[in-house]
Structure formats: C-alpha cells, structure tokens
Design a protein around this nucleic acid. Structure first.
Lengths: 257, 257
DNA sequence: GTCCTGCGTCAACACCGCTGACATAACCTG
DNA sequence: CAGGTTATGTCAGCGGTGTTGACGCAGGAC
C-alpha cells in the first residue's frame, strides 16, 4: 500500500476541494489554531476541521498521519511563534527571563491548543532551535554541561508546566472560570479561623494573588537559584545547597573552564 | 424531573447489580483509579468503568452528574492520598520538599486522572487542608504574609504544573510515548554540530536527563531561592524584593548579595 | 492526447459520553 | 406480612469521535 501521507516538498498535484480550497500543511495548521482559538479546545476534531477547511474530514489524513501528528505540528508552530524575532542581549539572566516569558505568553495566546500541545516533545525544527538557544545561553554563561542540562530541563519544563496550567484556566468556560475564582474569594475566605488559621489570616492576599499567574515569580526564583549556583558553586568545592535528592546522574562539579 | 444523582448520605436503597455488586461513590472512584493504574491511560471511559464495576455503564450517572464530576471527586481523592499520614518535622525546607514530592508522586500514580484534574480548584476538604498545611509551614518558618502567599502560589503551581506535564507523558499512548523519548536519543543526537553546537555537545547528557522528571531539581531550585530570601531579605522588615509577580518586566528580584 | 497516480470523497467501523424510558427490588407505612 | 413508592440498575439509542479502504477524478509528465 502506498504511503498515505506524502512529504511536503514532494507534493506536486494540488487539487482543489469541491469548495475550491487548495490544501497544505500550513493551511491546515493555521485553520486548526484559528478553530481552537474561536470555538475552544473541544472544537478541534477532524470533522470540524474538515468543514472549517472546506474539505472532507478525511483529506486531513493526506497531510498528517493522525491527529497526534497534527498536534505535534501545532506544538512546533507555537514554539516557533514564541521565538520569532528574539535576539540575545548577552545577559544570560535577562535572556532566559525573556525567553521564558515569551514561551508562556505564546502558549497562552492559544490556550486550548497549548493544553493539548504543551507536554509533547516534537523534535522538529522550531523546537530544536529553542533547545539550542537556551542551552547556548546557559553554557555561554559558564554553567558546566551537567548543570546546564539540568537547569535547561527545569527551566523548560517549568515554563511549559505553568503554561499548561494557566492555559487550562483560560480555556475554561467563562462560568467555570469565575466559579474557580470565587472559591478563593468565597469558600476560602469563610473558613473558620479555628480550623484553618493560616488561610483565614491570608485570605485577602490569596484572593488577589491567585488571580494572576504565579509563573513570573516562580521564574525569578529559579533564576535566583541558578545565579547563586553559578556564583558560588563552580569554584572548587561542593555545590551550594547540595545536589540534593535524586541529584543529576553525572552531576559532579566539573570545573571546565 | 427528579434529580438523577442522589447525595451520598441520603442513599437508602442499595440495589445490587445483575452481577451482584453494590455500588457507591467510593467504590466507583477506587475502581476508576485501579482501572487507570492497571490498564493504562486510555482505559478510563464510562463504558469500561461500567464493565469493570460489573454494572451497566449508565449506572455511573446515578452517582456522578458527568465524567467531569467524577474527575473532580478523583482529584480531591488524590490530594487526600498525597497528604495521608504526613507529619511536619519542624524543618520548613524538608517539609515543603516532602509535600511537593508527595503531590507529584500521588498524581503520577494515576496519570490519566492527574492530567485532567491537576488544573482544577475543587475547594473541597482535602484541598483546603493542603492549602492550610503549606501556608502554615511558610508562615511558621518566618515568611511574612505577602511573601508566604507568593511562595505558596509558586510552589503549588510548580508542583501541579510538573505533575500535569509528567502525567501527560505517562498517559500518552505507548507509541507516542516512545516516540517522544526517541526524539532525544535519535533526532537530537544526530543534529549537525555546525548548526546546533550546544545540542551536539550535550546530546548524551540530554538523552539521559530528559528521561526522568525535572521536578525534583526544579523544586530544589525553588527552595534554594526561598531560603535565600528568608535569610537575606527579611531583615528590613517589610516586603522584601518588592511586589513581584506580574511586576513590570524588568523587575528583577533583588538578589541578596 | 494519453497515461499514471496523487488526492479528495464517500461510506463504514468501532468506539465514545450521555439520556429517556422502563422494570424491579428495596424501603416505608400500615 | 402486604402494598405502594420510588430509587436504582438496565436497555436501547442519539449524535458525536478517530480512522480506514475503496473509488474516481483531475493534474502533471511525456
């Protein structure tokens, strides 16, 4: 059986659909993002995508092996948009901070798609470029390779984890979203100080703080800790604050440099 | 129309199914968790749950309004299990660390459920208890209220974000999961050193490091930074390091010296 | 102009969440 | 113990899902 999906560069015949649309991977990805942005995550089905494209739903399978394949392409597109136009300043801390915030906002611009794509490893070009950039910032800053990889891992997964979490909040139906916020302003604000003294004492702070994303603060904490390790740990002896827990496998303080 | 779901305490008639099983909310939740644990992520459907229970699938709707309702109940159950038997040691850092790891592992024990439940605010008893505990650890450690709330927020969302991310990886169909791992061992290992020098230099480290969760390391970074702020930042009394969070984009936290 | 075949279309399969109608067993009343 | 209520398990079915194989048309090569 001949392969159903033909690689993009080898495509020759572009036959318009009944409704006159000429399909392409790019058009399908853009349409999928638009669909998700307008009608929510549950709108991303092959059948709806087909009608939105003006084509039979199964035509999508001429361009992607499965919905999962399509999802990976969408994920890579989001990564690409996050990095578009970014330039390093030379200050590793500022660079990482801006990259993190860019990833976060790019995913939040398409919450429903982010929900589905944030946890995938695509291995495609845009992702590879992002990995290369972040690793480059860390290694150029002076982190030895094992530490650079560990921090890269924590940095990326934290960014994507928060993106997924915050995207989920944004993707909720309006009614459910306000209901979730109400929990902090109503339920927790009314808890008995005898049984929940700490919540009672900070209820007003909680209700305002939980409104916004915790990511920028968490990002600053991560960069703080990384900076401290760079400043203190790479000299001679032990890594500050210990490589505790399931420390990185090859995490010895290699003084390379 | 009479309500389909009767609140648990008011249930009187417990009629066994054809196969002799007596249903209850608790039994359904346990069965759902067991189902996910034994037969993988995609096993959690109402129909399979029905057959696993030894009942008609639609009987589930006598106990939960929807699968979403069931999921929220599962979420609170997971939070409860994460905290079961936990006792504070008095060392705030060790306490937060163990709480974080407990949350992470409790969610990862049931990936499919975690994936859908990690971003919900239930406001139910187990969740309230967890919030109270974490806030208590921070405030007792000496963090002033605004800082305690901010760190609580970062800590919880980091834990849940990583839990969701890692759960999603575990919940993937086997094919997609191995494909994602292969990316690090194959695609990235073969990138040209001329175009991706930093990846090429660390490919071996990446392929082993990305195999496991980045959470423990990220958690340590967060705790490092929190400890540094507690040690250095609280001298002056008020709100150290300024009102961060979604603060203005250059609002770098004051790194202690 | 003819041929080949890429690709859009159609129909169908197996599964999903969920609902209304119905039978019956378990409880309450007496 | 008898009878009435009704909660609850069962059933059939609706409208949706991803995916596939067969089919036939038309775009491009020659």
């Amino acid at each position: 059986m001949s392969e159903r999906v033909v690689p993009e560069p080898q495509r020759r015949r572009r036959r318009p659909t009944k409704q006159g649309v000429v399909l392409s991977r790019e058009l399908i990805i853009d349409t999928a993002l638009r669909l998700v942005g307008q009608h929510g995550a549950e709108a991303l089905t092959v059948r709806r995508l087909g009608t939105a494209l003006g084509a039979d739903p199964s035509a999508v399978y001429r361009y992607f092996h499965s919905t999962d394949d399509l999802l990976l392409a969408i994920a890579d597109e989001l990564i690409g948009r996050a990095q578009a136009g970014w330039r390093p300043t030379g200050d590793w801390r500022a660079d990482l901070r801006s990259i993190g915030l860019r990833i976060h906002t790019a995913y939040l611009a398409h919450p429903q798609a982010a929900l589905l794509a944030a946890h995938r490893t695509t291995g495609r070009s845009h992702e590879a470029a992002a990995v290369e950039t972040i690793l480059g910032v860390l290694r150029t800053a002076g982190f030895p390779d094992p530490e650079a990889v560990a921090i890269y891992h924590a940095f990326v997964d934290q960014s994507l984890g928060f993106a997924a979490l915050d995207a989920a909040a944004l993707a909720l139906p309006a009614a459910a979203a306000t209901a979730d916020l109400q929990v902090w302003q109503a339920s927790y604000a009314r808890l008995d100080a005898a049984t929940h003294p700490h919540i009672a004492a900070t209820a007003h702070l909680l209700s305002t703080d939980m409104r916004r994303s915790g990511y920028p603060y968490a990002l600053d904490l991560l960069l703080d800790a990384a900076a401290a390790r760079l400043a203190g740990g790479l000299r001679g002896g032990g890594r500050p604050a210990g490589g505790r827990g399931r420390a990185a496998p090859g995490a010895r303080p290699v003084a390379d440099g």
